[in-house]
Amino acid sequence: MSAFLEVRDLTVTFRVGSALKARLRGEPPPDLTAVDGISFTAERGESIGIVGESGCGKSTLAKAITGLVPVASGSLHLDGNPLTARRDPATMRRIQMVFQDPSSSLNPSLTIERMLSELLNVHRIVPRDAIADRCGELMELVELPRSLLKSRPGRLSGGQRQRVGIARALALEPEVLIADEAVAALDVSVQAPVLNLLNSLREDLGLTLMFISHDLAVVRYVSDRVIVMYLGRAVEDRSTAELFDDPRHPYTRALMAAAPKFGVKKAPGESALKGEPPSALKLPSGCRFRPRCPIAEEICEQTEPDLAGPSPIQRAACHFAWDGHEVRS
């Protein structure tokens, strides 16, 4: 039996310079590998958090799954059917995305009603005469008053706009909802209601939710399972409870130590993680976290560790992650 969403060896590359110049110099084409061989599976209704710092490829991964950027190699399957770069509208409909900045991802010149009815019309979700009703239902679903249907995004507050962004995604009745930093641009006091809304929508509609964020605390709040990414690779893939109790990858541990906590004073000059991530164009040999890793040894320089562990959702890409455990990849 295959999983609901299956991502296998997914790689996404971007051309970053002149290919002609590189060829004249006899160098390989200047490609940046944003997502480098990521594999995971998700069950229907599961909530997966993807965590990492800027440039780790988490948004690119989301866009590749949604079909917004072309995949260089690897495969994607939804419900056993392959997802290719060119998708028909019926397939496109099944995976929808909520973007980070609702003020730039909504068309400012359309009223909310136009925006939603256009989607419903093009994808023929409901008969034409039921479109107005459905728009109202969608607004109720995201806990907005129907009266806002007549306004344009500019009139709404940030929290309301993000709810419209969610309504827009839900209009197509997706099975997978990908939220890319959906609350990062919101004020702290309005983040919580949006997170609660995502949680309840997932339960009520049985959505598979992929929640992408740089914030471990937010991810912990909405996800059953967390994938930690570093420089295009998944370095740890665990259930949320296990990950936060007992992180196995030194990068995950450092990220947790770096997160500000209530009532803990900062020691002068101290930091959990020294330096900055290397450029994805000049990756270090062996494990890519090695130059910043506090426990790196010789083997880390020579071989890149696989994402492996005792079970498919207990995996970490570190040579020392499962010392004393039986490991299969």
């Binding site: 710092e53 800027s54 740089h214 914030d215 471990l216 450092a254 990220l255 130590a257 770096a258 997160a259 500000p260 900062k266 020691a267 002068p268 000059g269 101290e270 930091s271 959990a272 993680l273 020294k274 900055e276």
Partner: peptide
């Protein structure tokens, strides 16, 4: 980023 924020706060 969180890890850089952590460094700057320490600094």
């Amino acid at each position: 980023d969180v890890s850089i924020q952590d460094q700057i706060l320490g600094l």
